[in-house]
Simulated assay, not measured.
Amino acid sequence: MSFFKRIFSSEKKESGLNEQAKQTLDKGLEKTKTSFFSKLTKAVAGKSKVDEDVLDNLEEILVASDVGVDTTLKIIKRIERRVAEDKYLGTDELNQILRDEIAGLLSETNNTNTSEFEIPANKKPYVLMVVGVNGVGKTTTIGKLAYQFNKAGFKVVLGAGDTFRAAAIDQLQIWADRVGVSIVKQAMGSDPASVAFDTLKSAVSQDADVVIIDTAGRLHNKVNLMNELTKVKRVMQKVIEDAPHDVLLVLDGSTGQNAFEQAKQFTAATEVTCLAVTKLDGTAKGGVVIGISDQFQIPVKYIGVGEGIEDLQVFNKIEFVDSFFK
Rank of each mutant, 00 (worst) to 15 (best):
D51T: 07
S10V: 12
G46M: 07
I7C: 08
S10H: 10
K31I: 03
G28I: 06
G16Q: 08
T24N: 10
E14A: 15
F36Y: 07
R6K: 15
S35P: 00
T24H: 06
G16R: 06
K12A: 15
L55D: 01
G16A: 12
L25A: 05
K12M: 13
Q20L: 11
G16M: 05
D26A: 09
K5R: 14
I7K: 12
L29G: 02
K39P: 06
T41W: 01
E59M: 07
E52T: 12
E30W: 07
V50F: 05
V54G: 02
D26S: 12
K33Y: 09
K13T: 14
K47I: 01
T34G: 09
G46I: 08
T32K: 03
L55P: 06
T41L: 06
F37L: 07
K5I: 09
L17A: 03
D56R: 08
S48W: 11
K12P: 00
A43S: 11
F4Y: 14
A45M: 15
L29W: 05
L17K: 01
I7G: 06
K22M: 14
F36L: 10
V50H: 00
K47G: 02
L55G: 04
T32L: 08
A21P: 05
L29R: 01
T41S: 13
F4R: 07
E14D: 14
S48Q: 13
V54T: 08
S9F: 11
L40S: 06
L17S: 04
S48I: 07
V44A: 06
F36P: 02
K22I: 05
V54W: 02
K31T: 04
E59S: 11
N57L: 00
K13I: 15
L17E: 07
L40K: 04
S38M: 10
D51P: 11
R6F: 04
T41H: 11
K22T: 08
Q23I: 15
